[in-house]
Design a protein around this nucleic acid. Structure first.
Lengths: 121, 121
DNA sequence: ATAACTGTATTAACACTCTTAATACACTTA
DNA sequence: TAAGTGTATTAAGAGTGTTAATACAGTTAT
């Protein structure tokens, strides 16, 4: 369900945050569904429970999951997450468009590339 | 000409590599133009000469600059850099388009966003 | 030649972050 | 009560980035 990419320069806890967000976004984890416990996930991934805890704490801070002490971590409602994700995507588009423009890539070329990629993938 | 962003999580030497590439791309540094010496730039930016050296070494490795020992570092021909930069932009477009598609953002929405950003910035 | 620039290399120390390890404590559930 | 949850703390280790001090070699102008 989750794997760690040790060639990724980002810290493990940050990868975990993104992977779990992604699992929620694609619907593999649904609202109010329980996440694996800190210790179990740590064992599965062969990493330290503290690292899992750090990722879960960050996810809670972001409102992506909620915690019931003594019971476990659960997926929160996804409304905000979905909206945030769309905003994030728009922000990335804006950044790359600005970079493209600076590099004298025409609007048409950008759109052409978008179309090609969208149909391919 | 160059500033360091200490809130940027990336290491200084990596920021330098990007900033210098950018100066070349926008034409502020031209082929065969001499770059500031390791020691002078270090003094200007109030950082260690070794850090500049590391950035210059990486730029040389990438073929962006060339070195004449005892004389200095010079901007290389920009043909490859320009081509690489365009490829890099295409790669980024591909990545974001893929992400958008996964998030159920339609092709039309992406293009709409591209158009809006392109005209605005 | 000499001085004052260049780049390059080496070694050591320091700081920061990430990760691990070993515990301990509080809450929940069967 | 036992076994599972989350949470907190402290210490240690590893890795990377940065600094500092120094040395050496090539170039250029005087």
């Amino acid at each position: 369900m989750i794997t760690i990419d040790y060639s990724d320069r980002r810290p493990i806890y940050e990868q975990l945050v993104d992977k779990i967000k992604n699992l929620i976004l694609i619907g593999l984890l649904k609202p109010d569904e329980q996440l694996p416990s800190v210790r179990i996930l740590a064992t599965e991934l062969s990493i330290n429970p503290n690292t899992i805890q750090r990722a879960y704490a960050e996810l809670e801070r972001q409102g992506v999951i909620y915690v019931v002490k003594g019971r476990g971590n659960y997926v929160a409602q996804t409304t905000n997450l979905l909206a945030q994700h769309k905003e994030e995507i728009k922000g990335k588009i804006e950044a790359i468009v600005e970079e493209a423009k600076k590099a004298n890539v025409t609007k048409e070329e950008v759109i052409e590339e978008v179309t090609k990629c969208y149909d391919k993938c």
